[in-house]
Computed example of a mutant assay.
Amino acid sequence: MSVGAQLSVTDQRRATRHPVDYPVIAEHNVRGDVQLHISNISAHGFMVDNAEDLNRGDRIIVRLPVVGRIEAYVIWVRDERAGFQFERIIRLDDFDAMIDTLQPNPKLRRRR
């Protein structure tokens, strides 16, 4: 029997990723509160650039503006970076409102 998250990853790498600079305290299911820094985000997931001691399949819960609490799973880890997949896709209107909050520079936002 396998341990950890059972992830079904489709090719979501083409999803538009928005650069952000967002520190967050994540709730890790084993390690408790973990400080992470989100450096880019999409409707499907996000990347952090300080992924100390995270492993593929780890589950965390983060609190994001507009969206609130959302669960995410580690999909990949490389050096100090890690990619997460949300347990659900964020609705487009909520995602756009969240990006407006996280990315104040309109030149870096996706065109609507």
Score class of each variant (00 low, 15 high):
residue 106 P to E: 14
residue 65 P to Y: 07
residue 8 S to T: 11
residue 88 R to I: 02
residue 92 L to H: 11
residue 39 S to T: 09
residue 54 L to Y: 06
residue 61 I to G: 07
residue 6 Q to H: 03
residue 36 L to Q: 00
residue 82 A to H: 13
residue 39 S to Y: 12
residue 48 V to P: 01
residue 51 A to R: 11
residue 70 I to F: 14
residue 101 T to R: 15
residue 64 L to T: 09
residue 94 D to G: 09
residue 21 D to V: 02
residue 11 D to V: 03
residue 43 A to M: 12
residue 90 I to H: 10
residue 25 I to K: 05
residue 18 H to L: 04
residue 76 W to G: 02
residue 54 L to Q: 09
residue 17 R to K: 15
residue 41 I to R: 01
residue 56 R to I: 00
residue 81 R to N: 12
residue 44 H to R: 05
residue 1 M to K: 06
residue 71 E to P: 01
residue 92 L to M: 11
residue 34 V to Y: 01
residue 89 I to Q: 06
residue 108 L to E: 10
residue 101 T to Y: 15
residue 50 N to D: 07
residue 30 V to S: 14
residue 79 D to E: 01
residue 69 R to W: 15
residue 26 A to V: 14
residue 53 D to C: 05
residue 16 T to N: 10
residue 34 V to N: 02
residue 19 P to L: 10
residue 70 I to L: 08
residue 25 I to L: 01
residue 24 V to M: 07
residue 70 I to A: 05
residue 32 G to H: 06
residue 111 R to G: 12
residue 95 F to P: 09
residue 109 R to H: 04
residue 51 A to P: 09
residue 37 H to S: 02
residue 27 E to A: 13
residue 76 W to F: 01
residue 81 R to D: 11
residue 25 I to S: 04
residue 25 I to V: 07
residue 83 G to E: 02
residue 35 Q to H: 02
residue 18 H to I: 04
residue 32 G to Q: 05
